[in-house]
Nucleic acid binder design. Structure first.
Lengths: 245, 245
DNA sequence: AGATCGTCGATTGTTGACAATCTGGCATCA
DNA sequence: TGATGCCAGATTGTCAACAATCGACGATCT
């Protein structure tokens, strides 16, 4: 591995404190993303700027910039002078998301591997416990977030800003699919023990074992998501009218 | 030097530009990116919206959206209510760019590996020949583009849209560093034979050999870029005034 | 009937003016 | 002298009106 000590390690605990200065654009991004991920605006639904600007009580300027950001995140697609829609779901995208995620997460672990300390292990356990708590509470919506936070740790701990950026790009897309899955089937979150062997490998000495665990975890995730999508072909296809503003 | 106050009529103004314009935003993105990569606006220089909107003869709306896109691409950084600057160069970024690029390019080759056909091989040779042509012509500026196109082939051939997107994100950053290197030293482009063993491995049967070639190629590239950057500490550091509009 | 062309409504693209916020310098004061 | 608070200028954030473009519908022609 040619790049073991690539970046400065960062404090994994103090990463969430720095909240960007409140600007309308940022605020709208949050609200829109929430609305999309909650299914309030389903995949394929049109996102009309005038309607949204009225709904969120802002002018079209900040709203447009918010839309651009969501385009960047893959939650929204647009055609010049024609229209903007919530991204459609497709099995091809699922395969791309999970295959790339496998590569990135393996790389992230490779970076972290030599510097796994007690704090890292404790934090990994803590986030897994948080995930289990949301599962036990039957809160599928929160389970999505805690699951993402669990896997997010290794990216944060890698200290690799570009890698974190890439993870952020996948994260939004994952949420889109998981949220749709959750809405369609409900109470279908991850199992309590879904990370047991993953954590065990993460605490072990063999990096190869970790690689295999990551690949397995991703394969399972992909198969589940793919299977769900095939049972709901209506979620792909052409943009649909209705269910907006 | 102050912008030339020509007040070009919009209708015939298109004659002055080589860059096609679907929308003004896209048009400005191209021109701004070109200006930055050409060193016309050097790293650290302020990007004042009003000045740029006058320079490019557009209003601030499209210009702002163009800036957002360049922020996404990593060429520009901004602080709310304070200012926007061309991104600074740093050795940390170089390490991140090349390490991630190693991972992505390896993955891309893994995808392509089973479907390498004659067309792929011919195209790879063609692009390498194009690179050599620009090197022989002493055109460092074109060498940057042909080098990027050479490596871009495997991403295109992978058919992995998300991967291509990730490559696009790295591509802009690479260009920023290579362009700075070129401006600083001139005539320091890649050697004619820099891809010989790379291509040989790409045409071979052993994927492991290919992985090693990619890693070597990236390591060399990173070392070169890093070394250049250390000789020019003035290119990092805090934003500098001047050299704009 | 089928194809073609033009018109119209809807939607995004663009603009210039106005408001909110930050930075740096200067006067003031202990 | 050094720190502090305020003010002015600069810069970005936001807004509402206007222009350009597209897609669908219907009239017209063959």
């Amino acid at each position: 591995m040619p790049f073991s000590e690539v970046s400065t390690p960062r404090d994994v605990g103090a990463l969430l404190e720095r909240v960007p200065k409140a600007t309308l654009r940022a605020h709208i991004v949050e609200r829109l993303r929430l609305a999309i991920l909650a299914g309030d605006i389903p995949p394929g639904a049109p996102l009309v700027e005038t309607a949204l600007s009225e709904r969120f009580d802002v002018s079209r300027g900040p709203l447009r910039e918010a839309l651009r950001q969501l385009i960047e995140e893959g939650l929204v697609v647009t055609v010049p002078y024609t229209g903007t829609h919530v991204a459609e779901l497709s099995v091809e995208d699922v395969q791309e998301i999970y295959s790339l995620r496998t590569v990135l997460e393996t790389f992230a672990f490779e970076q972290v591997w030599p510097r796994r300390d007690d704090r890292f292990r404790a934090e990994l356990k803590r986030r897994n416990a948080a995930l289990i708590a949301t599962i036990d509470a039957g809160d599928d919506r929160a389970s999505i977030l805690t699951e993402l936070e669990f896997h997010g740790l290794v990216y944060e701990a890698s200290g690799h800003r570009l890698l974190q950026r890439a993870w952020h790009g996948l994260r939004g897309r994952l949420q889109l699919y998981w949220a749709a899955h959750h809405r369609a089937h409900g109470r279908r979150g991850p199992r309590r023990d879904s990370h047991d062997s993953y954590i065990k490998a993460a605490f072990g000495t063999e990096f190869e074992a970790m690689k295999i665990e990551i690949a397995n975890h991703m394969r399972r995730g992909m198969e589940t998501t793919e299977k769900f999508l095939r049972t709901r072909p209506d979620l792909s296809g052409k943009p649909k009218r209705g269910a907006n503003s």
